[in-house]
């Protein structure tokens, strides 16, 4: 379980997160919704250790992880699929996946390694086809799958995903959300940041709304759907 308590973060004088508290239960998909600039990406980057918060705590399975480095967090089983995918453009798809397993390279046998990569290829058959192609030549949807595959190569228990649907065609978005559902079925916990509220409602168990760096609402999928204000603001429904 991931538990964030009264987290604060500022970019210089600009406050990005103010006393953000939230919980993401093991084995579930927790979704953070919010408009651009609400602090969603900042929040995920803080959890992944890329940014150091000015105050607050982050606990993972009861242990305070706030001072850990990104690599220590990967070792603990927390992996971030970053916004805009950030794949390695001049490496092949296969090499991108190998870098994902960087911290396990010494421990893994060659056969284990092949097994892990084959698991990713089974989940994303298109990556198998593109195995020797450079990452920079992939389409947006393929890059997103590669970014998810790369994060999975570190063997995570908890996957942080930053707007995986960003800039993708509707059909591909459906595929990505289907994959998130499968990941949950396989026992992974997911903390998902999204702007696409309609799609998120179908797969997430619990929601937090982030607005100007503060949690403005939280509840289950049913609560969210039945809340008139939320329907208007986030589901694009006319009153």
């Amino acid at each position: 379980m991931l538990r964030i308590d009264k987290l604060n973060f500022s970019y210089g004088a600009i406050k990005a997160l103010t006393d953000v508290s939230l919980m993401a239960a093991t084995g579930s998909v927790t979704c953070i919704l919010g408009p651009n600039g609400a602090g969603k990406t900042t929040l995920l980057q803080t959890v992944a250790g890329l940014l150091k918060p000015s105050a607050g705590s982050i606990q993972f399975d009861g242990e305070n992880i706030i001072s850990l480095s990104p690599s220590a967090l990967v070792k603990k089983g927390i992996a971030l699929v970053p916004e805009n995918r950030l794949i390695f453009p001049e490496m092949t798809v296969r090499e991108n996946l190998i870098v994902g397993a960087y911290l396990r390279l010494n421990k893994m046998q060659k056969s284990d390694f092949k097994f892990e990569i084959d698991k990713i290829y089974a989940r994303f058959p298109i990556l198998d086809k593109r195995s020797d192609q450079l990452g920079g030549t992939l389409s947006g949807g393929e890059q997103q799958m590669l970014a998810i595959g790369r994060a999975l190569m570190s063997g995570p228990q908890f996957l942080l995903m930053d707007e995986p649907s960003l800039g993708l065609a509707p059909k591909i978005i459906d595929e990505i959300f289907e994959i998130i559902k499968e990941l949950k079925q396989d026992g992974l916990s997911v903390l998902l940041v999204e702007q696409n509220a309609v799609k998120s409602l179908k797969i997430a168990d619990y929601f937090f709304l982030l607005d100007q760096g503060q949690v403005s609402y939280q509840g289950g999928a049913d609560d969210l759907e039945n809340d008139a204000h939320i329907r208007k603001a986030y589901l694009g429904e006319k009153s």
């Binding site: 990104p70 870098v99 960087y102 790369r150 994060a151």
Partner: peptide, 18 residues
């Protein structure tokens, strides 16, 4: 591998534990 990763996309390299 790590050097090429850092050179091409540093933040992603950090997220992979490099």
């Amino acid at each position: 591998l790590a050097a090429r990763a850092v050179s091409q996309q540093m933040n992603a390299a950090i997220l992979c534990g490099i």
